[in-house]
Amino acid sequence: MPTSARDIGRLFLPLSGVVLIGVIWFAASQSVPDLPSPIKTWNESKSYVLQPFDKRGEMDQGIGRLAYYSLVRVSKGFLLGIALATPLGLLLGMSPTLHRMLDPVIQILRPISPLAWLPLGLVVFRKSEPAALFAIAVCSMWPTVINSAAGVRAIPHDYWNVATVLRLSRFTTFTTIVLPATLPYIFTGYRLSLGIAWLVIVASEMLTGTPGIGGFLWQEYNSLIYAHILLAIITIGLIGFGLDRLMGLAESRLRAA
């Protein structure tokens, strides 16, 4: 069977990128004494990867279990975030007054790091779990707010004219025009928000020491098992990539519809 040059390129080029990173990693591990090489990392992480759902202790669990804890926490925080962000964004898009009033606040809140929100969450909620959810929600909501608002503002003037000429009620205008027209923008916001939520989870687990992929990473650093840090980093990256792909799929289906 003849394989075209494009097919080779599609598979070969990304693979060679991965290999290249592996080589750089290996070279670095030869000069930095504490950095484990790829082979050492694999040997020390095998049991976590091959028995992903084993539970040997509070922090000593298979990588699948740890990832599961983190994913559940991220889902809760993310859902809480978009549940607040979507209506807020739509309102900001529909009301120029509200937009002028709240835009500066949003621009100031947006760049605040999760590491800054978490202690505030701990002060207010006194427990690590709600504090983590608070940090995830409050950090991840902004892309959804900004995109939903932009989506409403991007609704073609013609559609507003149709709503006016047909004398549609506010409710009907919202359900038949505003929402369908804005949906692709909202989902772009969700995708970006989920990415941020996943970034925040690691930081919040590291600070609160709750079981999960980030908590594991910090604990293994304290226990001087550096190979597991790399294992955790690779896992975080792979899961983040998977989540983004999933949201991307949902988004493109919406655009096609």
């Binding site: 013609d158 559609y159 004219n161 149709v162 000429v165 047909l166 004398r167 549609l168 009620s169 009907t172 038949t176 025009i177 369908p180 027209a181 519809a257």
Partner: peptide
């Protein structure tokens, strides 16, 4: 009113577009 650029709602079928107007009127 009929607009130059049709101004139909792309997420509704032809029937739903017309029915929206009838339901409102």
């Amino acid at each position: 009113m009929v607009f130059q650029n049709y101004s139909l709602l792309p997420w509704l079928t032809a029937l739903e577009n017309v029915q929206l107007a009838v339901a409102s009127a």
